[in-house]
Design a protein around this nucleic acid. Structure first.
Lengths: 353, 353
DNA sequence: CTGAAAGCGCTAACAC
DNA sequence: GTGTTAGCGCTTTCAG
C-alpha cells in the first residue's frame, strides 16, 4: 500500500499497515512490531532500517487492531451528567490535568442524564476497552442494583460523589453534609426560620441535602418548603429556577413566607437571585440565598454568593489519582477518599428582618 | 465461555463472544452476525433462537472487532481547547443535543492547548475510526500547514471558528467581525478614545479582533494598548486578567489613560471587572468594559456585562448538522455556514467622563 | 536476534 | 436461508 496510499488519498482506509513497513524494511511484521513496542531485543541495524521505513511511510499502528488483541487502550473514560454545569467542568479539568501527566488520554461523554443512558455509556466504554472509568454523580439506581459492582469487577472504576453507604467501591466523596449543615446553621443563626430548599429532579446529592434540610427544619419546628426545578445540571437550570421563583410567589409571599433560600447548587442559586430581582426583591435585604459548589462565578454575581466550596479541582485530582492507583493494582481493596467542604460567607445572606 | 464467564468474573476479557452465542443457539457465527445486524434474511424461528441465546448470555458485540473490519464506529470526535470556558461547553452542548438525535455518540477531548497536541488528538480519533470530527477553534498553524486538508480527505471534518480565508474546508463560522465592530463603534460613540484591547496568547479569533481593534484605533488616531493574558480558554484566565489589571495600572492610570476595555471573551471581561473593583474603580462610571461571547453569567455579573452574543448553541447545532450532512455525503463540496453575532448592551459601558 | 503462524472477535463474499 | 472461510491489523507464542 505504501506508495499506493499517496495515489489513493481520499479513499478511506488506505492507511499504512505494519505489513507495508515490513516490506519496505525487508523484515517480518514481527520485527516491526518489536521495534514499535520496544519489547524485544532487535539488532540495532535492523531497528534502524525499520525506523526509517516507519518514518518514510509515516506509519502509525492501528490502535483498534492493537486493542483487539491487547484489550487495553491507554484511555480513561469519564462520564458526566452535564458539562455546562461549571461544577462538573471543574472536576473534569482536575481529572484531565492529572491524567495527562500519566500519559492517559481522557475521553469524555457528557449530557448523561438518566440511569439507563449512564449504563449504556459505561458499557460502551467497557466494550471499547478503556483502561479505567470515572463516573461523576453516578445514579443511585445503578449503584443499588449492583450494576457498578459488576462493572468494577471488569474494569478499574472510580465514582465521584454518589450514594455510597455500605457500598464497597472506589469513591471520591466531598463531604457535602458538612458544608450543607454549616449553611443551614448559618441561616438559622441569622434568625431565619422560613427557609425554602431548592433542588433538582433526581440525584443522590439532592436527596442527601434534602434530608439534612428536613432535620434542621424539624429542629426549629418549621414546615418544609421544597422547590423542585427539573434537571439541575445544565445551564438551563438558571432560567428554570428563575421561572419557578415567579410561580411560587403566589403561594408563598417571598420575603415574608420565605426569608431564605438554600439551593443545591450555585446555578439554582443564581436562578433565585434573578427571580428575586425580577420580583423587585433585594438580596440579602429581603431574602437570603445560599448556594452550593462555589463555582468561580459565584464570587462575581451581584450580590456575591454565599455558598459551600466543594473543591472541585481537588475532587478531580483525587479521582484521577485513585483510578491510576487502581489500574496499577496498588489498592487491592476499594477505597473511599474524602474531600472537605466549607461554607464561604459572602454577600447574599443577612439577618432576618 | 458462556457459563465460565460467570465463574471467572474479575478476570478481564471474559466477555461473551459471537462464537458463544452461535454455540448456544446451535447456528454458525454468520447467522448470529446476521440477526445482530439485521442485514440478511434469517428464518424467523432461527432468529428467535439466536435472540434468546443473546439474551441468555447477555451478549454485546465487541465494537473494537466490528470497527476493525467495518472502519466505522458511530462516534463523532469533538476536540475542544478547554471545557471550562463556558463558551466551549455551550457549543459542545449544542453539538451533543443534535448528534444524539441522530444516534451518534460524542466523544470529547478537552484541554487541547497547542497545535501539536491538537494534531495528536485528531490523529488518535482518525486512527480509532470515528465517523466524523469536529474541532472547535482549530489552530491556524494546522490549517495553513495543510494538515486539516489532509484530514478532510480521510474523514468528514467540520471546523468551528478558525482561520478560513481561502481555505476550502467545512466551516461553521460566527461572524465575529460584525459583533466586534459593533462593540468598538459603540465604545467610540460613547466618546472613548483610550481603549485597551485584552486578548489571550494565541488564537485566530484574538488576531482577528486585534486587527479590527487596530483599524478603529487608527481611525480615531489613538495609540494601541494591547494587554495579553496567557491562555484565554480556561477559567483561570479570570484570575490572570485580574492580576494583569493590577500590573498595568503602573504604566497606565486606569480611568485616565484607559477609559475602556474591549476583551476577547467574557472571562477576560470578568477579570477586568474584578481587577477594577480591586483598584476601587467603578464600572462603568470610571471605566467601560465590553466582553465577547455572551456566556450565561455575563448577565449576572455586577455590573451586567455588555458583550457580543455568539449564539453558541446555534454554532454547535450547525456544526452537528454539517458533520452529519458530510458523513451522509450530501454535500460534495466543503461548505461554510455563518452564524450571526450581535452586541448586547447591558450595564458595563457608559459615556466617557 | 528473527520469522511463521495462531489468534483477538467480527464481517462479508462466496458457496451450498 | 445458512455455513465456510478469508480477511481487518496487530501481538505473541513457539521455533529456529
Amino acid at each position: 500500500m505504501g506508495v499506493l496510499s499517496i495515489v489513493f488519498l481520499g479513499v478511506k482506509n488506505l492507511a499504512v499497515t505494519i505489513e507495508d513497513v515490513a516490506r519496505e524494511a525487508g523484515v517480518s511484521i514481527t520485527t516491526v512490531s518489536r521495534v514499535v513496542n520496544d519489547n524485544y531485543p532487535v539488532k540495532i541495524e535492523t531497528r534502524q532500517r525499520v525506523e526509517e521505513a516507519i518514518k518514510r511511510l509515516n506509519y502509525r499502528p492501528n490502535p483498534i487492531a492493537v486493542s483487539l488483541v491487547r484489550k487495553t487502550t491507554n484511555i480513561i473514560g469519564v462520564i458526566v451528567p452535564g458539562i455546562s454545569n461549571m461544577y462538573f467542568s471543574d472536576v473534569v479539568s482536575g481529572i484531565e490535568k492529572y491524567l495527562k501527566e500519566y500519559d492517559y488520554d481522557v475521553f469524555l461523554v457528557s449530557e448523561v442524564k438518566d440511569a439507563k443512558s449512564e449504563k449504556k455509556y459505561v458499557n460502551k466504554f467497557i466494550d471499547r476497552f478503556v483502561d479505567g472509568l470515572i463516573v461523576l454523580d453516578p445514579k443511585t439506581e445503578n449503584i443499588l442494583s449492583g450494576f457498578y459492582s459488576d462493572v468494577s469487577k471488569r474494569i478499574p472504576l472510580v465514582l465521584v460523589n454518589g450514594y455510597n453507604e455500605g457500598i464497597d467501591l472506589n469513591f471520591v466523596i466531598s463531604i457535602q453534609e458538612k458544608g450543607f449543615c454549616e449553611a443551614m446553621e448559618y441561616l438559622i443563626n441569622l434568625g431565619h426560620k422560613k427557609i425554602a430548599f431548592v433542588r433538582g429532579e433526581k440525584s443522590y446529592s439532592y436527596d442527601l441535602k434534602e434530608n439534612i434540610y428536613k432535620e434542621y427544619m424539624n429542629k426549629i419546628k418549621s414546615p418544609y418548603i421544597i422547590i423542585n426545578t427539573d434537571d439541575g445540571n445544565t445551564i438551563e437550570v438558571v432560567k428554570n429556577t428563575e421561572n419557578k421563583i415567579a410561580e411560587i410567589n403566589d403561594r408563598y409571599r417571598i420575603g415574608r413566607d420565605i426569608t431564605a433560600f438554600c439551593a443545591c447548587n450555585d446555578l439554582m442559586a443564581f436562578g433565585i437571585l434573578n427571580g428575586c430581582s425580577n420580583l423587585g426583591l433585594s438580596v440579602p435585604k429581603d431574602v437570603s440565598v445560599v448556594g452550593f459548589d462555589n463555582i468561580m462565578i459565584s464570587e462575581m454575581s451581584n450580590p456575591k454568593l454565599t455558598t459551600v466550596d466543594q473543591n472541585m479541582k481537588t475532587l478531580g485530582k483525587k479521582a484521577a489519582e485513585l483510578i491510576v492507583k487502581t489500574i496499577k493494582n496498588e489498592n487491592k481493596k476499594p477505597q473511599k477518599v474524602f474531600v472537605d467542604t466549607l461554607l464561604i460567607k459572602r454577600e447574599s445572606c443577612a439577618l432576618v428582618k
